Amino acid sequence: MIVFVRFNSSHGFPVEVDSDTSIFQLKEVVAKRQGVPADQLRVIFAGKELRNDWTVQNCDLDQQSIVHIVQRPWRKGQEMNATGGDDPRNAAGGCEREPQSLTRVDLSSSVLPGDSVGLAVILHTDSRKDSPPAGSPAGRSIYNSFYVYCKGPCQRVQPGKLRVQCSTCRQATLTLTQGPSCWDDVLIPNRMSGECQSPHCPGTSAEFFFKCGAHPTSDKETSVALHLIATNSRNITCITCTDVRSPVLVFQCNSRHVICLDCFHLYCVTRLNDRQFVHDPQLGYSLPCVAGCPNSLIKELHHFRILGEEQYNRYQQYGAEECVLQMGGVLCPRPGCGAGLLPEPDQRKVTCEGGNGLGCGFAFCRECKEAYHEGECSAVFEASGTTTQAYRVDERAAEQARWEAASKETIKKTTKPCPRCHVPVEKNGGCMHMKCPQPQCRLEWCWNCGCEWNRVCMGDHWFDV
């Protein structure tokens, strides 16, 4: 396979590697080409510095992935760790964990309700045991953590790749202090920090972006993250068709209702045909949960890209028209025109101005929308079919299609509260000796007794199943 190397943020060049090629071997190839010592090179990928003893497969490097290699003399205490030698983080029983690669970060837990604080980093599902597709590297999971809308060759929703760059020099040479644990960490600028490894760059702020994971991409090709779309790892039924499908869209209502993408497309087109989208002054033209839940309008309007190009163009047109109407304007009634106009409040005669090729020149009556006339309008008909009709959803289907309910059931079956801080902690095999993952707590306690870890627990039921 081919990976592209950008040395000291210059133009990239291809390097041929195998899945079992080590990072140090990659350094040696680059060092020979650039005429520099291999031990002064640092390989940066997806916000993480890659260790010498890791392989291309370990690092989730795919065909035509772009890695950054910078030349920086080692500072005291760094060289041993980078070589894969006596790194205290690798000691058996050590409590410190390697910062998780962005290629394996899962933010789907952050669609849980606000009262489930902490689960994004504490609760991990076991539903990723799908067998890898044919042709994928051994052991590589097909679980997708992110979804994007690819405006490039795909023109559809695709699995996405999370990447990070330095907000100062805009190069992907920043190593994160810690990985993101929720969508806010990724979507809110300057929320996460790190250290830029580019020479002479003092940058410390992280800037995240997404790429389409279905095809090789260049540095400049980015895609918009659709953070309401998630892999259906909890096997929730769709609120409309009641099938279990994946991926799904999880509405931001209190129940976190789930809808499959085909039904979401149908829901949007139906509402669009009836012009029953909601115009929100802050958000724009949007839709609420299909069950009509309060405070559930979709905030990231790129989710409506699921409509496809033709329907999305209609959505944008109707949204612009609705904006004009909300501002007190009118639409030209001549067939084939429909231009938005903003006449004076007491102006009865409205002319669709033909300047700049935008208007048709038609003069019409503001009251009856017919060709302009003197005197009273002959008839004014009330528009028919403008009443909002509820999208029919079966109550039982709505009850079963809740992301929140599956989460709470998982928590109930696989977790116990920490005796000190009461945060839910998952036990997935292993011994009875637990350690609270909350940095402010870190209590060592017994899963069996529910009390602080002691010699009695150690001698009596340390390794009970």
Rank of each mutant, 00 (worst) to 15 (best):
A379V: 12
S136W: 10
C263A: 00
D86F: 11
C431E: 04
C436A: 02
G35I: 02
V105A: 15
Q78S: 13
K416H: 05
E49N: 01
G47N: 05
C293Y: 00
A172R: 09
L325I: 10
L272T: 00
R271D: 02
V117I: 10
R271Q: 14
R455C: 15
M432Y: 05
Y143C: 09
P294H: 09
N144D: 04
G160D: 00
N90Y: 13
V380K: 10
I122C: 13
A371F: 10
K76N: 14
V56L: 12
D219A: 10
L307N: 04
G292S: 08
Q317M: 12
D39N: 09
L41M: 06
P281D: 12
F208L: 03
T388Q: 12
A390I: 12
H200R: 10
S181W: 03
L331F: 04
V5P: 03
N428R: 15
G114L: 09
H227R: 14
V224Q: 12
L226F: 04
S384F: 10
S193L: 11
V258G: 01
Q276T: 10
D126E: 10
P132Q: 12
Q440P: 08
Q34H: 14
V43M: 04
P199A: 09
W453M: 15
G357D: 11
A401E: 02
D86Q: 09
D346S: 11
E426W: 06
A398Y: 08
R256H: 09
C446D: 00
L331W: 04
F13I: 07
R97M: 13
I69Q: 00
T55A: 05
A398V: 12
K161T: 11
R256T: 05
C196D: 00
G93F: 12
G77S: 12
W403K: 03
N273L: 04
H257F: 01
E382C: 14
R245Q: 07
Q57C: 07
G459K: 15
N58V: 05
H303Q: 02
G329W: 03
E49D: 03
T231C: 09
Q389E: 13
I2Y: 11
G450N: 02
N428M: 15
P153I: 11
P113M: 10
P294I: 07
E321K: 05
P417G: 10
G359Y: 13
V111G: 11
F251Y: 04
T222F: 10
R75W: 13
P137R: 12
W447R: 07
V121Q: 15
L261Q: 03
T414G: 09
Y267P: 01
A206E: 02
Q165M: 13
E353S: 08
G160Y: 02
Q438L: 05
A401R: 02
P417W: 13
L228D: 04
D86C: 09
E16L: 05
H215Q: 02
G336V: 06
H279C: 08
K76D: 14
E353D: 11
M458T: 15
A291P: 01
S296C: 00
M432N: 06
Q165S: 08
P37S: 10
I122P: 15
T168L: 12
S10G: 04
T237N: 12
V244I: 13
E367H: 08
F210H: 02
I142F: 14
E322K: 04
V350Y: 04
L187D: 03
G336W: 08
A320C: 06
P247V: 06
A82N: 09
P189W: 03
Q389N: 15
N52F: 00
S233E: 08
A31E: 05
V117K: 15
Q40W: 05
F210P: 01
D184Y: 04
R314Y: 02
V248C: 05
Q57Y: 06
E367C: 06
S145H: 07
T414R: 13
A38T: 10
R420P: 01
Q440C: 11
L307F: 04
C457L: 01
V350L: 11
R191I: 07
L112R: 13
F304G: 02
A320L: 09
V425K: 06
P73S: 06
H433I: 03
S378T: 11
K32Q: 14
H433W: 04
S167Q: 09
A138C: 10
C418M: 00
E444D: 15
V330P: 03
L261H: 03
V244M: 05
G355I: 11
Q311P: 04
C421P: 00
E322H: 05
L272A: 02
C446A: 01
Q317G: 10
A379D: 12
R140S: 13
I411V: 10
F304R: 01
L272M: 12
C337A: 03
D18W: 12
Y285S: 03
C182M: 06
K220H: 12
G118Y: 03
T386N: 13
L272Y: 01
D126Y: 05
T351I: 14
E96Y: 15
G361M: 08
R402G: 05
V30A: 04
Q178F: 06
F264C: 01
I236Y: 04
C360T: 03
C446G: 01
D346L: 09
V248H: 01
G329K: 03
E409P: 09
G450E: 02
S246N: 11
Q317I: 07
D243Q: 15
K48Y: 03
E49T: 02
R348W: 05
G459Y: 15
H215V: 01
S193R: 15
D86W: 13
P73Y: 07
S9A: 04
H124Y: 05
C431L: 09
A120Q: 13
V278P: 03
N144Q: 10
S109C: 06
Y312T: 03
N356E: 09
R128A: 13
T103P: 13
V393W: 06
M434W: 00
T103A: 13
Q316A: 10
G135M: 12
A172L: 07
